[in-house]
Amino acid sequence: MAEATQTWSERLAELGIALPAVAAPVAAYVPAVRSGNHVYTSGQLPFVDGKLALTGKLGAGVSDEDAKAAARTCALNALAAIDALVGIDNVVRVVKVVGFVASAEGFTGQPGVINGASEFLGEVLGDAGIHARSAVGVAELPLGSPVEVELIVEVR
């Protein structure tokens, strides 16, 4: 857990995590917007170096562990969007995580998949990463992604 005097940038460096470039929007929206003391990210897909890291559905070929790792990547991409807008060190806390999981009929493990994002935020932000959350199963996600994650964070 991060020390009280440590910045989020320092914590990321300590963990050996570099924020990626912000993923380019795939439609008519921006990666994040600020309203008052909150930043809302658009849904982030598991892009790595501009390419979707994984495609498919849970319960139909995509493993829970691979999707959990993809949810972590989505959260990392959301932090990058926040950093580009207001600077990561201005984050006070994560307020809410919404995760979507492309699910085949009968798949009910959405919460475990989205734990990939939640656990990552806790690893990086400690108590400030504790949040409210929704984990929703959907029929399809953009570009065939198995997961999509959006964040609401409080900022200074």
Results as ranks from 00 to 15, higher is better:
residue 89 D to F: 13
residue 128 A to S: 12
residue 76 L to R: 15
residue 49 D to G: 00
residue 25 P to H: 08
residue 105 E to L: 03
residue 123 E to D: 09
residue 34 R to Y: 07
residue 116 G to K: 14
residue 30 V to M: 01
residue 3 E to D: 14
residue 91 V to L: 05
residue 24 A to H: 01
residue 88 I to S: 09
residue 17 I to D: 01
residue 146 P to T: 08
residue 64 D to H: 15
residue 91 V to F: 02
residue 48 V to D: 04
residue 1 M to W: 09
residue 116 G to Y: 15
residue 38 H to I: 02
residue 18 A to S: 14
residue 100 F to P: 06
residue 13 A to C: 05
residue 125 L to E: 03
residue 85 L to H: 06
residue 122 G to A: 13
residue 18 A to L: 09
residue 75 A to Q: 07
residue 27 A to W: 13
residue 120 F to V: 00
residue 70 A to K: 09
residue 115 N to P: 09
residue 10 E to Y: 10
residue 17 I to S: 04
residue 23 A to H: 02
residue 7 T to E: 01
residue 126 G to T: 04
residue 15 L to G: 09
residue 51 K to M: 04
residue 139 A to Q: 12
residue 153 V to K: 00
residue 5 T to C: 01
residue 156 R to L: 02
residue 127 D to F: 07
residue 14 E to V: 08
residue 57 K to G: 07
residue 7 T to L: 05
residue 33 V to I: 15
residue 75 A to I: 08
residue 131 H to E: 00
residue 102 A to C: 03
residue 96 K to M: 04
residue 50 G to S: 03
residue 86 V to G: 06
residue 107 F to V: 11
residue 79 L to G: 01
residue 30 V to R: 07
residue 127 D to P: 08
residue 100 F to T: 04
residue 101 V to G: 13
residue 127 D to C: 06
residue 7 T to W: 06
residue 81 A to V: 00
residue 18 A to M: 07
residue 75 A to T: 08
residue 14 E to R: 13
residue 57 K to R: 15
residue 133 R to G: 07
residue 148 E to N: 12
residue 126 G to Q: 06
residue 111 P to H: 10
residue 145 S to T: 08
residue 135 A to S: 15
residue 148 E to G: 13
residue 135 A to V: 11
